[in-house]
Write a protein that binds this DNA or RNA. Structure first.
Length: 444
RNA sequence: CGGGGAGUGGCGCAGCCUGGUAGCGCAUCUGGUUUGGGACCAGAGGGUCGGAGGUUCAAAUCCUCUCUCCCCGACCA
């Protein structure tokens, strides 16, 4: 992509409404455009990144055997009346009437809808477990939307639902998502830690929030810092292994505000391991048993001929919020340098030729390099304007490709000036550069 | 919803108090000079001041109503 042809409207001034760095960067580099309070259009750069995040989320769902469906954004109120949540959910639900005066709503979540889908087709325990997910826009009429994409009203979310025959199997499903989430966030280059959490309006008694640390986060968190050293390596998609994984994490204190108990915290965590900070919730998993299956009559035949309500859980990841969360975690605001993890970077590398009006050799060189990189499936963006060097670099630093090739004074025949953002530049041949990037991409 | 603030070219702002029909920086366009960390010179285009009503000879400036956005609090991926 040539910067001169791209729709990447870059601003020098930070729009005054943006208070946190993710919002600021997203506006400055033209990732999003506000349409009304808490509702945004996604412009090419932002959309590209979100799609890459979505892809990773999808892959990790598929790996645990979840099947993708797509439910509508507009739902009928009938099923919500069945579950009893039509009244409970309150003002946050956007209610709409259609031309026949039927009560509709823009879905804030999909427990009812997916339960309805499930119950109409699945009748036997033999068909269990079922893990269904979709990635779809949600609308929650937040009292006060803020922080750009982080707390908006319309947002893009992956939500999954599990259906099992009993508690034991249901916890197996729960743990699969537990693992899946750890893997997903790792691929996004985020350290997200699971924390005991409140279940809120979803209901139930078992729940974990996945939180990444960030000063601008809205959740207060209290944790034993040793939990940050854990990972899911070696965990198998098997009951005991998954169970152990969860135990491994749960041995360390880590809770959000609502579950915080000062005495317990001080008793369980030695002072040097205590972490009190803020975080961004990027995922949330719930187990709620038969809360919906009972009210909505979703049952299956059991081996002995009896029936029972299925045990359910639900599992969300804020896909659009993750875009902002990654910026919060990775953007060096002071130096105005963004480095996207290669797994979701809008471009793998930016090519920055120093252009002289009377001499097209730098641009030609950039074009040749570009061809070679594209042949190797490396995504590029070329700064082909005739602006000053510094201006070009600054812009590319904001767009955030993790690597740069600068064609200018330092270029020395076949030896190119190659830079991993945030590190010193080095002189490398194109082939070596290709190898470095390919290797990084494979890792993710 | 309670409390506070703001709406003036794409972005950031000044002008409003003390009415006299808009100005600056950035961005954009043209020409030229530049080119290693957001350049310089010359020129150009673009707003009727969120909306409605009122006061006045005259309103961005005063008054009334209204809409929108932002910030602080209670809720959430």
């Amino acid at each position: 992509m040539y910067i001169s042809k791209s729709f990447i409207p870059i601003l020098k001034n930070i729009p005054s409404e943006a208070k946190i760095k993710s919002h600021q960067l997203m506006l400055r580099v033209g990732m999003i455009k506000q349409s009304s309070a808490g509702i945004y259009s996604w412009l090419p750069l932002g959309f590209k990144i979100m799609k890459k995040i979505e892809k990773i989320v999808r892959e990790e769902q598929n790996k645990i055997g979840a099947q993708e469906i797509l439910m509508p954004t507009i739902q009928s109120s009938d099923i919500w009346k069945e579950s009893g949540r039509y009244e409970d959910y309150g003002e946050e639900m956007l209610r709409i009437k259609d031309r026949q005066n039927r009560e509709m709503l823009y879905g804030p979540t999909n427990e009812e809808l997916v339960t309805d889908i499930f119950r109409s087709s699945i009748k036997s325990y033999k068909s269990l477990p079922q893990l269904l997910y979709h990635i779809q826009w949600k609308f929650r009429d937040e009292i006060r939307p803020r922080f750009g994409i982080m707390r908006c009203r319309e947002f893009y979310m992956k939500d999954a639902y599990s259906f099992d025959i009993n508690d034991e199997e249901a916890l197996f499903s729960y743990n699969k998502f537990f693992l899946s989430y750890l893997k997903t966030f790792k691929r996004l280059n985020l350290t997200a830690i699971p924390m005991a959490a409140d279940t809120g309006p979803i209901g139930g008694n078992l729940s974990h929030e996945f939180v990444i640390l960030a000063e601008t986060g809205e959740s207060k968190i209290y944790a034993d810092k040793r939990i940050f050293d854990l990972n899911s390596d070696g965990t198998e998609l098997e009951k005991n292994s998954l169970d152990n994984l969860r135990k491994k994490y749960e041995q360390f204190y880590s809770v959000t505000d609502e579950k915080f108990d000062k005495q317990e915290f001080e008793k369980k965590v030695s002072e040097k391991n205590q972490i009190k900070t803020k975080g961004i919730e990027v995922g949330h998993i719930f187990y709620f048993g038969d809360k919906y299956s009972k009210s909505m009559e979703a049952s299956v035949d059991l081996p002995g001929g009896k029936k029972d309500y299925v045990k359910m859980g639900s599992y969300g990841i804020g896909v659009s919020r993750l875009v902002g969360a990654i910026i919060e975690a990775k953007y060096d605001e002071k130096n105005e340098i963004m480095k996207w993890p290669i797994s979701v970077a809008p471009y793998d590398i930016s090519i920055i030729p120093m252009i002289n009006k009377n001499d097209s050799s730098a641009l030609n060189k950039a074009n040749n390099i570009n061809l070679e990189l594209e042949k190797n499936n490396i995504e590029t963006i070329i700064e082909d304007t005739d602006e000053n060097f510094s201006s070009k670099i600054k812009k590319m630093n904001l767009i955030g490709a993790p690597y740069q090739i600068i064609i200018g004074k330092q270029t020395d025949g076949d030896l190119l000036e190659f830079k991993e953002v945030g590190k010193d530049s080095q002189k490398l041949k194109l082939k070596e550069i290709v190898n470095i990037i390919k290797k990084e991409k494979v890792k993710n």
